[in-house]
């Protein structure tokens, strides 16, 4: 019963959006097959779908997905490992803030892709190299948001904690500042996954691996198989969306459920 009612509710809520998607596909197909009529300039949805099936049958897509995920995981874990502790140090201790801030502010505006030469020199043609470029993109949002979150911890929480015996700095960070700052940290991680994912194509461009969604996007471009290029574009978009959904529906609900009902 519930499932039926839920589904009915969902259809009512989302049918306009679904309609737009179907319309976009129809317009795209008509434009490609009736106006452009050149599957190199603009492959239509049917071309893309058949390219998708053949890539899937060759088993390339799964291998690409795995390799890209590895690059992404390397970059993001590095960003978490470096960004969160530095953000905590700068947010908690104003000396650390004054000390590190100029360096961070100078490094931060450098586009991640500008690090590619050094990524190659330092790490060679390895997954770590691609991971490093993603790391550069992801580390600053995490660092900055952790910093802001820790700066914004209300004094009264720390004082209430002190009155209850939470007097050591380590405990104050662990039991008070970190949970208070967690919403900000999580939204930093969320931004970082978006930025990191966008760096992926470029990070795989210079040949660090034989597979990878970004790598093969360029590979099929060089073969002038534009239908396959569109397959990779759509996959990159959909996986990026999936990662964001994980945040929106899982992490927010389970880690930050205390915020529900709060106006702030």
């Amino acid at each position: 019963m519930n499932i039926i009612r839920d589904t009915a509710h969902r259809i009512r809520e989302h049918w306009l959006g679904a309609l737009a998607l179907v319309l976009a596909l129809v317009v795209w197909e008509c434009y490609a097959s009736l106006v452009v009529r050149n599957s190199f300039l603009l492959p239509g949805p049917t071309d893309v779908f058949s390219a998708f099936i053949s890539l899937l049958e060759k088993g390339i897509l799964l291998a690409d997905f795995e390799v890209s995920l590895l690059h992404f995981a390397i970059g993001l874990s590095g960003a978490l490992l470096i960004g969160i502790p530095i953000g905590i140090a700068m947010g908690w201790n104003s000396r650390a803030d004054q000390f590190l801030n100029p360096v961070i502010e100078i490094l931060r505006p450098i586009p991640p892709l500008a690090w590619i030469p050094f990524a190659i020199i330092w790490f060679g043609f390895t997954p770590v190299s691609a991971g490093f470029v993603i790391f550069v993109g992801a580390v600053f949002p995490i660092l900055i948001n952790t910093y802001t979150g820790f700066r914004g911890v209300p004094r009264i929480f720390v004082e209430a904690g002190r009155m209850l015996g939470c007097t050591r700095t380590r405990d104050q960070i662990r039991y008070i500042a970190f949970p208070a700052a967690l919403p900000s940290v999580v939204s930093g991680i969320r931004i970082a996954t978006g930025v990191g994912w966008m760096c992926l194509v470029a990070a795989e461009l210079f040949g660090v691996s034989n597979n990878g969604l970004g790598k093969d996007l360029w590979f099929y471009y060089n073969l002038h198989q534009m239908d396959a290029v569109v397959v990779y574009m759509l996959l990159l978009g959909l996986i990026g969306l999936a990662i964001d959904m994980v945040f929106r529906y899982y992490i927010d609900r389970h880690f930050l459920k205390w915020r529900t009902g709060e106006v702030a």
Partner: peptide
């Protein structure tokens, strides 16, 4: 010595 604050001082995440 225990203290009850004027403002809202409960930990909202607990």
């Amino acid at each position: 010595v225990g203290m009850v604050f004027q403002e809202y001082s409960l930990f909202p995440w607990r």
